[in-house]
């Protein structure tokens, strides 16, 4: 069987998945009735609707009359690097402080570009760290760890 419109097909799969997940998770909550709806009532109904809607989109994707732009093409490098850089920033912000974390984020994120150059990325990191220091630490006085915790003596 050939899937005529892969993007619609996959969208349908996604909607069915989210709908089913919502239904499964709300079944653990109080459902209640129309007069006294419990916390699970609304998500259960929405989840059901989502499953039906997703199925329709899915079926149209398989057998619809539409011409198809083909399967989506993924490039893993940019998405992986950017997301890893952001998550890493959130993990090192407390132990390493704002300035070091900023530098790490900038250098790592820069690697996602096909135009990456070490020298440029390092300079950019230095400049942005300086801007962050001035704007957030001195100007706006944000409540956040600025220096690495081993330097300020507390872990």
């Amino acid at each position: 069987m050939r899937i005529r419109h892969p993007k619609d097909f996959l969208t349908g799969v996604m909607f069915v998945f989210f709908g089913a997940a919502a239904m499964a998770l709300s079944s653990g909550l109080t459902i209640g009735g129309a007069a006294k709806m419990g916390p699970g009532y609304f998500p259960l109904v929405l989840g059901g609707f989502m499953v039906v809607l997703g199925s329709v989109i899915l079926l149209r994707g398989i057998a619809g009359a539409q011409g198809s732009p083909g399967w989506p093409i993924l490039q893993l490098k940019p998405v992986a690097i950017i997301l890893v850089a952001v998550v890493l920033f959130s993990q090192i912000l407390k132990p390493l402080g704002l300035l070091l974390s900023t530098a790490v984020l900038v250098v790592l994120a820069s690697r996602a570009s096909h135009e990456f150059r070490w020298k440029e990325a390092l300079l950019n990191a230095a400049a942005l760290t300086a801007i962050v220091l001035v704007v957030f630490v001195y100007f706006l006085d944000f409540q956040m760890p600025v220096w690495p915790s081993f330097l300020s003596g507390r872990l």
């Binding site: 952001v86 920033f89 984020l105 820069s110 990456f116 440029e120 957030f136």
Partner: peptide, 17 residues
Amino acid sequence: RLLYPAILVFCCIGLYS
């Protein structure tokens, strides 16, 4: 290539705050 790391930095700091 210089702009997007800056956007990320401001987003992350903003989100923390």
